[in-house]
Amino acid sequence: MTEPALEHGALVYGGLAEYLAALVPFLREGVEAGDAVFAVAPAARLEALREALGRAGDRITYLEAEAFYRCPAQTLRDYDRLVRAHAPRRVRVAGERPWPAEEPWARAAEWTRCESLINTVFARSGARAMCAYDRDAVNARVLREARRAHLWVIDGGAPEDVAASGADRRPSPLDVDRLPFESAFELYQVRRFVTARASRHGLDAARLAALETAVTEVATNALKHGAAPREVRVWSHGEEFLCEVGDHGRWRPGAPTGLLPPGSALDSGFGLWTVRLLVDAVRVHADRAGTRVRLVMRR
């Protein structure tokens, strides 16, 4: 079995309520799991977190961001100390660097690079990290870099902000076949629904079976972790057959994305990882309206 991988994600938020809605459950989960939990943020944010976390917050170490994020090399050294000092306990960090509006890009770039370095330095640490970005204060270039450097991005904004690239634009409703489902006993119908249409699109037997496995897993996740109403939507786009499972739950911060190879079938994230192996592409979108997992299969 491999060593546990780092799960390093980003939160893009607007306003304190959104900030707390993502970070409080993330930190509380760490306390409940017995992690060594740290919150690094500007002083005003720390105060709000402490208040919102209540008793659970007593077991969290709060660090002021102004002191912690002085220079990237020091910050990396300090994170390294935290991980080593608490091993074999897992470290969980919610971090937020203040991004001064007047900061020149050259200086900001040192810190966006630092985010990428974290992925390398702590790759096998098993740590859970969430970096918060204030949408109203951080400039667009920094946000773009942040999306690249993190394994997952939670964006509380409106859906149109999330569907960034052309390929991810929503299809016109007329082209889409949809099937609502609300129980595990309907997974069987979900499979029939998807394979009938994928077969008409021209997928061969092996790829049909792979898609059938993938959509069942994603729909099962929507039942376990998502919220009603749930539905599966399918449509074609040129060579591509697209199959999207949507629900109205919010993507749990820190939930595995399935990008990193798990140690065994017992690890959380094994299912989604298997899905990524079976289909041509998986795109996860999470926003205030819910969670959408899109599976792409080419003919």
Partner: peptide, 13 residues
Amino acid sequence: RFMDPAALNVLVR
């Protein structure tokens, strides 16, 4: 005819 990935978890357990 069909088995989902989560069933592998059941088997390993």
